[in-house]
Design a binder for these strands. Structure first.
Lengths: 161, 161
DNA sequence: TATTGTTATACTCTATAACTATA
DNA sequence: TATAGTTATAGAGTATAACAATA
């Protein structure tokens, strides 16, 4: 037990690099958007709801959120006066998310904030390397690292009563 | 409200690319390590404890974990027979994390698993672009995106009694 | 029977607070 | 007084289950 023989790493620590950069960027983004009272999810819903008539479940699919998470997000947007639930004219179960004028102005601002945070992050890269990096990261995101692999599957919940 | 004018994006969606790739890689890593009964944290502690005599708080600093998270992680390592708490010879408050022989063998295996998952992920990139990508990602991690920015600061907890 | 959206709540993860024993 | 480690538990985020209305 006195012998210390740590295993040798044969590959660079891609996990650390990706986790660290995405965590820092996410934190910065959250702080920047919080200045105008938005979360990243609210921004996401706002932008995609502006693209056309979308129901909650459609927007949930686009933003890769659970439908219950979408309820909370839309609640927040309504409370802030940025969007409204409207009945769908074709499906009485569904709600169309309509963005208010205030919401549209906010979406313009939040998109500028998002672009600014991204731009500042990419500024760290040498001129001319930015496109290369984005191309390769995009390649990674669309290639082997595109599928979330077998679902982690949460354990079925316990009944309380 | 009938006018749909979504804001124009002027920067690529770096957030999505980083979040997506890191999430998928993290999920794959967790699944791969789970096959030998480890979490990423357990692997991390195991490897760094093998490098020399380290206390829990030192290992917590290296792995960027809270000391309470470290307690849980070391509990799991002890329960699995991979490491043991030993009194420090110089500070009676501190515990040295000693890796067992089984733990050392497990660390070899887990490091091979980690390298394999990283290698498979990087295989998606064209030959010759891997080093470029890693260099740029490393640059990003060490540059503007190195500091976690002003701490998000959690609200002080409420007292129950 | 399946689906949209809602509510309620259980689960996981993590951090805060308080404590003991040292320093 | 400050620090290492422990315990207990609050807080945040999210997903599961059950339900009502509708398809």
């Amino acid at each position: 037990m006195t012998a210390m023989t740590p295993p040798t790493r044969t590959q660079p620590d891609l996990s650390y690099l990706l986790d660290h950069t995405s965590h820092v960027l996410r934190t910065r983004m959250a702080a920047a958007l919080a200045e105008i009272g938005l979360t990243a999810r609210m921004h996401c819903v706002l932008v995609h709801a502006l693209e056309g008539e979308r129901t909650q479940s459609e927007l949930a699919g686009i933003g890769d959120m659970d439908k219950t998470t979408m309820v909370v997000t839309v609640d927040a947007l309504e409370k802030a006066g940025l969007a409204e639930r409207r009945p769908s004219s074709t499906d009485r179960r569904a709600r169309i998310i309509a963005v208010t004028e205030k919401g549209a102005r906010t979406a313009e601002r939040s998109q500028r904030i998002v672009d600014s945070v991204h731009g500042q992050a990419l500024d760290a890269l040498p001129d001319g390397d930015r496109e290369t990096f984005l191309r390769l990261l995009d390649h990674l995101a669309g290639g082997h690292l595109s599928t979330p692999s077998p679902a982690p599957a949460r354990r079925a919940r316990q009944h309380s009563g």
